[in-house]
Structure formats: structure tokens, C-alpha cells
């Protein structure tokens, strides 16, 4: 049992928290714009990579973080302009799918430029040195990941419920025509949602880099894992994203430890197939009403 806690549950929840954060990032953009950003995984990688490059250029760490955040926002706004806004709530999924996929290819390649695509150690995040907590060896990075998932999700829920802008984003998500008719701008809502999603990606990126090496080529995998978490939790649901992320974190860790590290993707893939066969709208999502 202790063995299970130590080798599966602790690292599984920590990984799961990261997948959950990716899924929360998807949900943030999707609820408002109806677009899933295939480049979100690359956005996650962009944050630590920008910090590394900025530190490498001689900036102090705090300034490197500021610069990296600025990069995230600028890239997010560019992505929004090229690949999101033309397709806001349009239902033309093929168009935004290809557009954001294209952005993903470009970002992945740009990420491979600084260190020729090699993995890098990231020492400017949260410590990954484990200490003893009630008989379990855990690292601050792992604890922070889980905490960050709940804090980010909680903050977003409060933001959507309590703030004026949050309310406007929900209004746009509910009814685009109705929202425009009371003066909410779709372009601005789409920009806000994209930047918000990029900020979630920034937090995710720092945590990813704190628990493992920064590997530019992993972006698409994170997109996939985050999407499976979304599929389990239901499209657009923040609570579902949290639950879905933690579930696949633990299940994939279990498979990795007990079956073999190369079966992790397979396990997550099978999880996706099972969810689609059993409950195509996710565990928490509602089936859409068919429209003729």
C-alpha cells in the first residue's frame, strides 16, 4: 500500500495536476471562443524556454520571468489574431483545428531553435528535491503542482462568477448574438480568453519544468494529455478538467510503473477510446441537443 502511495499516487497526482492545468487552459479558451488550441502544449513549453533563454542572455531571474510572461502575452495575442478570432463560435472546427495546429508546428520549431531541441535542466522553478512528509517522500514541486491546479481552477471559477469580465465571457459563451446585442465585443472577449489561457499555460510550464527536463518536442503530447483530461471531464467544464487530469495522471503513472514506461501513451489513448465509447460527452458534460 505504502509502495502504491509512493510510486503511483504521489507522482501520479503531481503529473495529473499538470494534465489538469493543461485541460483548464483548454477550457478557458474553449468556453468563450469554441476553439481548442492545439498549440496549447507548445505554449506550456514556451514559458520555461523563454525563462531559460532570458537567463542565458544575462537577465536576473525575476526579470527573466517578467520577460517570459511578456513573451507569452504577445504570442497569445498573435495566436488569437491568426488562428482564433476568425473562427470564434463559428462551428467550423476544421478551420481552427488546422490553424491552431499550424501555430503548433511553428511554435514547436521555434522552441527547438535555442538549444537545438535538446532537453534542458530548469533550476529557476520550484525545487524537485524530495523530503519526508508523513512517511512519504514528496518534493515541493509535486506539492506545488497539485496546489496550483486547485488554486488556478478556484481563481478561475471566482473570476467567472464574481467579476464583470468573467460574466461577460460567460455571456459570450452562452449566446454570441445576445452578448453582442448588449455591447460585449467578441474580439475583446476572444483576446481576453486567449491571454487568460496563456497565463494558465505559463503556470503550467513553470511546474512542468520544475518536475522534469524542458523538452521542446513534448508540446504535442501535453496537448493530447490535456485533451484526454478534457474528454473525461467534459468539454468546457473546469471542475471536469481538474478531475480528468488527476485521473489520467494516476492511471498513466500506474501503467508506467507496473507495465512499462512505453505503455503510458497507450494507456491514456485507451482511456480516451473507452470514454468515447461509454460516454461521448464526458463524465460531467451534457449531451448537446440535436438541431435541424
Amino acid at each position: 500500500m505504502d509502495e502504491f502511495l509512493q510510486t503511483v499516487l504521489v507522482p501520479g497526482l503531481a503529473d495529473g495536476a499538470i494534465y489538469g492545468l493543461v485541460a483548464v487552459g483548454f477550457a478557458t479558451l474553449f468556453t468563450t471562443t469554441g476553439v481548442i488550441n492545439f498549440a496549447h502544449g507548445q505554449m506550456v513549453m514556451l514559458m520555461p524556454m523563454s525563462v531559460l533563454v532570458a537567463v542565458g542572455a544575462g537577465l536576473p531571474v525575476w526579470l527573466a520571468y517578467v520577460a517570459a510572461l511578456a513573451v507569452m502575452v504577445v504570442v497569445a495575442l498573435t495566436v488569437e489574431w491568426t488562428a482564433v478570432r476568425p473562427f470564434v463560435q463559428s462551428g467550423q472546427s476544421a478551420s481552427w483545428l488546422l490553424s491552431t495546429l499550424a501555430v503548433s508546428v511553428v511554435l514547436a520549431e521555434l522552441l527547438a531553435v535555442p538549444y537545438s531541441g535538446e532537453s534542458r535542466n530548469f533550476t529557476y522553478g520550484v525545487s524537485k528535491h524530495r523530503f519526508d512528509l508523513a512517511g512519504l517522500a514528496v518534493s515541493p514541486a509535486e506539492l506545488t503542482a497539485v496546489a496550483a491546479l486547485f488554486v488556478v481552477a478556484g481563481l478561475l471559477v471566482v473570476f467567472y462568477r464574481r467579476t464583470r469580465i468573467g460574466l461577460e465571457l460567460r455571456a459570450i459563451a452562452d449566446d454570441l448574438d445576445g452578448a453582442e446585442a448588449i455591447g460585449i465585443s467578441r474580439a475583446r472577449a476572444s483576446q481576453i480568453a486567449t491571454v487568460l489561457s496563456a497565463l494558465v499555460a505559463a503556470v503550467t510550464g513553470v511546474l512542468v519544468a520544475s518536475t522534469q527536463l524542458v523538452t521542446p518536442s513534448l508540446g504535442l503530447s501535453y496537448t493530447f494529455y490535456g485533451f484526454v483530461a478534457t474528454a473525461i471531464g467534459g468539454m468546457g467544464s473546469i471542475g471536469g478538467a481538474v478531475a480528468g487530469g488527476l485521473v489520467i495522471g494516476v492511471v498513466s503513472q500506474f501503467a508506467g510503473v507496473h507495465v512499462g514506461s512505453l505503455t503510458v501513451n497507450l494507456t491514456v489513448f485507451l482511456l480516451l477510446v473507452v470514454v468515447y465509447v461509454v460516454r461521448p460527452h464526458g463524465l460531467f458534460g451534457a449531451a448537446p441537443v440535436r438541431a435541424v
Binding site: S221, F224, N265, L266, F269, L272, V273, P280
Partner: peptide
């Protein structure tokens, strides 16, 4: 075949990751 465009794209993306793993496995 039962999925919308998004589910399909993601499932095929997953399939690709899995096949790459299996080649090494």
C-alpha cells in the same frame, strides 16, 4: 466514426503517439 471533428483529430493524434511508442516497445 461517431466522433465530431475535434474528437477525431485528437484520437488520431493519440494513435500516432502510441504507434511511435510501440515501435520502440
Amino acid at each position: 466514426g461517431r466522433l465530431g471533428a475535434i474528437g477525431l483529430a485528437m484520437m488520431s493524434l493519440g494513435l500516432m503517439l502510441v504507434v511511435n511508442d510501440m515501435l520502440i516497445q
